[in-house]
């Protein structure tokens, strides 16, 4: 199977979010994968070169400074075709959902979203992926080539470094990239904390955190003491307590850190869909019946306002 990995780029730099897709390729087809990175004057290309890819192709063009699907998809389709790729793969993110599904449309290729396992049997690919808000796992059979796939980051982990460096080759953009949609701006950012999907520790807060200041003080404070990232429920985001990009869950991000601390989070199926693969889950909630306790390794029935300051202090002291 020849795999073409599409690196996540924001036009300016290559993102580490690409790494699980590389880990996938190492497992599925260690000697036969290439990586495509799109954007003008890309930085951090070395993020991609240490894992045994046959080549890292870079496509640079003034129309490609921002990741607009309408512009990126034809570039990917073009190179997938040139390479004769059997699989076009990226880590599941909003970037890849947007761009790769459009690529699949251009290639008339079937697509597997967010897969957690893959094998081939009788000339067919057999993939597992979460369905029904990750309440169930579905096994899918797919025929044809190429197949487009996004792979669920936490299921594939980090790639193994190799001694040889992959060659970086600049590649052409196809002519006539459509340029109807234009990029106007982006608001957001992790404010110096680790990226939510990459962090070793995530502290998430729910609706009872009242307002942005309270949320930042309690949830941000504990996250900083642990060197972790901050997450939130949809209810917290919808009430304006936490910014949108912190949402964890079915319609937010999927995380699987070593430690996930859920503070005043009820544990709806939609929230669990995004975090139940975390290694260790801690729940702090006033309601002993809250569903979050069903997935928590350690549960503390308590009022967050009473226990969080002390917990934050203890963590600071134990790490000092």
């Amino acid at each position: 199977m020849k795999i073409l990995i599409v690196a996540e780029t924001d036009g300016g730099r290559v993102s580490e979010k690409t790494l699980p897709a590389i880990a996938f390729a190492q497992q599925q087809s260690p000697n036969n994968f290439a990586i495509l990175a799109i954007g003008e004057n890309l930085q951090c290309i070395e993020t991609l070169t240490g894992y045994g890819a046959q080549a890292v192709l870079t496509v640079s063009h003034p129309a490609l400074t921002k990741p607009l699907a309408e512009r990126y998809a034809p570039v990917i389709a073009h190179h997938a075709h040139q390479l004769g790729a059997d699989a076009i793969v990226a880590t599941t993110t909003t970037f890849s959902r947007d761009v790769l599904a459009r690529t699949a449309g251009l290639l008339d290729a079937p697509m597997l979203s967010d897969i957690i396992a893959l094998e081939s049997a009788n000339g067919k690919l057999v993939a597992k992926r979460p369905i029904y808000s990750a309440n169930l796992i579905g096994t899918f059979e797919v025929e044809g080539s190429p197949v487009v796939m996004t792979v669920r980051g936490p299921a594939w982990g980090k790639p193994t470094p190799t001694s040889a460096e992959s060659p970086v080759q600049s590649a052409e953009a196809p002519p006539d990239i459509p340029q109807r949609a234009e990029w106007l701006g982006l608001q957001g950012g992790s404010g110096g904390r680790p990226d939510l999907t990459q962090a070793r520790v995530v502290v998430s807060g729910g609706r009872p955190l009242k307002d942005p200041e309270t949320f930042e003080k309690y949830i941000g404070g504990l996250a900083d003491a642990l060197g972790g990232a901050v997450g939130a429920t949809r209810a917290a985001v919808d009430s304006g307590i936490a910014p949108n990009e912190l949402q964890v869950g079915q319609t937010g991000k999927t995380v699987a850190p070593e430690l996930y601390i859920a503070v005043a989070v009820s544990g709806s199926v939609q929230h669990l869909a995004g975090m139940k693969d975390s290694k260790v889950i801690v729940a702090i909630n006033t309601d002993p019946e809250a569903p979050i306790f069903q997935v928590a390794d350690y549960g503390l029935v308590a009022d967050l306002y009473q226990v969080l300051p002390e917990l934050t202090e203890l963590v600071k002291n134990s790490r000092a």
């Binding site: 057999v126 309440n135 059979e141 797919v142 139940k276 069903q294």
Partner: peptide
């Protein structure tokens, strides 16, 4: 070209403390 062939519950997490 793609079909769902099997549906199963994900591995359950052990009850915690």
């Amino acid at each position: 070209r793609m079909r769902l062939v099997k549906v199963e519950a994900p591995p359950a997490r052990k009850a915690g403390k």
